[in-house]
Design a protein around this nucleic acid. Structure first.
Length: 111
DNA sequence: CGGGTGACTTTAC
DNA sequence: CGTAAAGCCACCC
């Protein structure tokens, strides 16, 4: 029937769908997701959306980092260092405390 | 409808 | 590399 004509009006749902599509061993940024949604100026809302879904949904929000590749969301984790450990465990490379976006940045797309 | 908030981003010093 | 300030848009009360 309608090819996605339903269009999830929920901004959050959009973010969840993209985050859920992030392949293992890859990461993406808030601004990039926002841009994919057509609102590059609403990068804050992306992280906000994850916080709203976190706790209720099982999304790999640890794969979402900021523009610098820094794990800004680690402070919302039960154990902050866990976020970095998870990424390393998945094969994501780090430069100090930041993700090597040069090699592991993933380009989000709406499925 | 209005005010407050925020897991961002950019620019500036 | 550090902090500070402004812009930004969606959600909550």
């Amino acid at each position: 029937m309608e090819v996605g004509a339903k269009r999830e009006s929920d901004f959050y749902t959009r973010v969840y769908k993209i985050v859920a599509n992030i392949p293992v061993g890859r990461v993406t940024t808030y601004g990039l997701i926002a841009q994919t949604l057509g609102m590059k100026s609403s990068a804050r809302m992306v992280g906000y959306a994850l916080n709203a879904g976190a706790g209720s949904l099982d999304f790999p929000f640890h794969r979402v980092v900021n523009r610098n590749g820094d794990l800004t969301g680690k402070r919302y984790f039960n154990t902050p260092f866990l976020m970095k450990e998870l990424l390393i465990s998945e094969g994501v490379g780090f430069i100090g405390d930041r993700v090597n976006l040069k090699l592991y940045l993933w380009n989000p797309e709406i499925k």
